[in-house]
Amino acid sequence: MKNQIVFLFLFFTPFNIFSQTIPGINNLIENKLDLLKNKNIGFITNHSGLTKEGEKSWKALNDFNNITISKLFSPEHGFLGEFADGEKIDYAKIDSLPKLYSLYGKTKKPTSEMFSDLDLIIYDIQDIGARFYTYISTLGYCMEKAAEMNIHFIVLDRPNPLSGNLISGPILDMNYSSFIGMYPIPSVYGLTIGELAKMIVDMGWIKKNPKLTVIPMKNWSRNFFYNDTELSWVPPSPNIPDLETAIIYPSTVLFEATNISEGRGTSKPFKTFGAPWIDNKKLLRELNKLNLESVKFKKTSFTPIEIQGKAVNPKYLNSKCFGIEITITDKYNYDPVFINLNLIKTINDLFPDNVIINEKRMSQLLGLKKINIFSTKAQINKLVKFKNISKSFYIY
């Protein structure tokens, strides 16, 4: 009998009857500019905050009369997406833009001084639909500070690249809350950033709630993966170069809490994983025995190197690793967290003397104390409950 981890996976097949998806920024420009006129505005964004035509959102707004973007704020990876995971960011020497603040590193929650003299805060960042992506933590901290200072907060909605129906993984136990997981939501939560913002506020997941306005998209369906939107793909962070990587990311991100490389420092981050001590022939044989749905594995080898803006001192730097490359065969029936849990279990079963797990980091990423807890009925019931509650925050 195959030893697989119990999971719950919710999916639908898309049917695109619309034209190009219109992101919230374009809807704002076309219909809601009066909200911005004659106000001092702070804008939280990065390289992914673009109009459908590819213009920087903040710049498109700043070009209008009576609209002033006086301060810019950037999340992890920087204003231009130019910093690797966890890399320190300093914009003190840049003077060609409005005043620019980093909300990563020592100052993750904006200070009162940063938000001083502002009448309005706007958030426009392309998210990835995964709990461990820190942009949604930055969103929460900024909404909380806006509420403390009685500043109106606007979220410009964008597509969830993984669709609005893919929900996977355990609900975060708040005992393991951190910047890589601040809310009691699944690993993959099936909401747009605007819907999540509404849920954060209404569920009381931050200390104080702001006056929140979500500017919705047009022509977006919950069934859409990002390629269905007809919008150009912009890597939301340096190691998510394409949609397939975005979908696979929750399948391998838990390796960050182990001594198994998740492919950073290669041309295929998160699509490949391995270590110098792995017998990938044996591993491939065992993975294929699991008959995991919607995914294909093949042997690979790679040597991680430092890549500017993408990988700083990656695991096994300049050492040859033997591992596996993942290919998705059916994204509509693919459950990323289920895959990741089975990958870790299989590797640990085959190489128990080699695998090292950072328990604290694993609990923060997974959202639970132990990996095998997810197989319990209680966890499955929590996921069903989240699915039902989150529907009340659907915009689309």
Rank of each mutant, 00 (worst) to 15 (best):
Q4A: 05
F7H: 14
P14A: 00
I17K: 15
G24R: 05
G24A: 03
I29R: 07
E30Q: 04
D34N: 09
F43G: 06
F43L: 05
H47F: 03
G49Y: 03
T51H: 11
N62V: 03
D63G: 02
F64K: 13
N66M: 06
L72T: 13
G78N: 07
F79D: 09
G81L: 00
K88I: 06
I94A: 01
P98G: 09
G105R: 12
K108Q: 14
P110I: 10
E113A: 00
Q126T: 04
I128L: 06
F132H: 06
E148K: 15
I154C: 10
I171K: 12
M182N: 09
P184I: 04
I185W: 11
P186D: 07
N209V: 10
K211I: 14
M217Q: 09
W220V: 03
F225S: 06
N227A: 00
D228W: 00
W233N: 12
P235Q: 02
P236A: 05
P241L: 05
T245L: 00
I248Q: 08
A257N: 13
T258H: 03
S261C: 07
P269R: 15
K271I: 08
P276E: 06
D279K: 07
K282E: 15
L284I: 13
R285D: 06
E286Y: 02
K289S: 09
K289M: 06
N291Y: 11
K296W: 08
S301Y: 15
C321R: 00
F322A: 13
I324E: 06
I339R: 14
L341A: 07
I357N: 12
K360D: 07
Q364F: 12
L366C: 11
K370H: 13
A378H: 11
L383T: 07
K385D: 15
K387H: 14
S392Q: 10
I395C: 10
